[in-house]
C-alpha cells in the first residue's frame, strides 16, 4: 500500500506542474491544441487516480468516479471555452474505466480470471499500478515537450 501512495504522490506532482504551466500560458493556445491537451491529460490522469483510489478504498466506488469528474472539471475551467465539455466527458470516462479495472483486479472471479491465491492478486496489483504510473509519466513528458514545439 505504501508503494501505491508513493506512486500517487509522484503522479500528482507531475499533474501539478502541468497545471501550473496551463495557468500561466493559456492565452497562447489555439482551439485545437486546447482540445488535445484537455482530452489526453484528463483521460489518463483520471484513469490512474481512479485506479489508485479503488485499490486503496475498495468500498467507495463513487468516490473515484467523482475524482475523475473533478479533475476533468478543473482542467476545463483553466483552459476556458470549448474545453469544459471535453474535460468533463473524458474525465468521467477515465474515472469509470479505472474503477472497473481496480475492482476486477481486487476480485478476479468477476471476470472468470483463474487467479486463486492472495499473493498473486497483490503481485498483479503492484505490477499494474507500476505500469500505469510509467504510462502516466510518459504521457506527461510528451505533453510537456509539446509546450516547447
Amino acid at each position: 500500500m505504501v508503494l501505491i501512495i508513493l506512486l500517487g504522490c509522484w503522479n500528482f506532482a507531475a499533474l501539478r506542474s502541468i497545471y501550473r504551466i496551463c495557468q500561466k500560458k493559456y492565452v497562447l493556445f489555439d482551439d485545437r491544441f486546447t482540445m488535445t491537451l484537455c482530452m489526453n491529460t484528463a483521460m489518463i490522469t483520471s484513469f490512474v487516480f481512479a485506479l489508485y483510489v479503488s485499490f486503496l478504498f475498495p468500498s467507495f466506488q463513487v468516490a473515484s468516479i467523482m475524482l475523475g469528474l473533478g479533475i476533468g472539471w478543473k482542467f476545463g475551467t483553466v483552459l476556458k471555452n470549448p474545453a469544459i465539455l471535453t474535460g468533463l466527458y473524458n474525465g468521467a470516462m477515465g474515472g469509470i474505466m479505472g474503477t472497473m479495472l481496480g475492482v476486477v483486479l481486487k476480485n478476479p472471479a468477476l471476470c472468470n480470471i483463474p487467479i486463486e491465491s492472495d499473493a498473486m492478486i497483490a503481485a498483479n496489483m503492484y505490477s499494474l499500478s507500476l505500469f500505469a504510473a510509467g504510462l502516466h509519466t510518459l504521457v506527461m513528458g510528451l505533453i510537456r515537450y509539446s509546450f516547447t514545439v
Binding site: 489518463i44 484513469f47 510528451l142
Partner: peptide, 10 residues
C-alpha cells in the same frame, strides 16, 4: 501523435 497514443493505450 499524442491523441492516437493515449486513445490506443486506454
Amino acid at each position: 501523435f499524442i491523441t492516437g497514443l493515449t486513445n490506443g493505450m486506454i
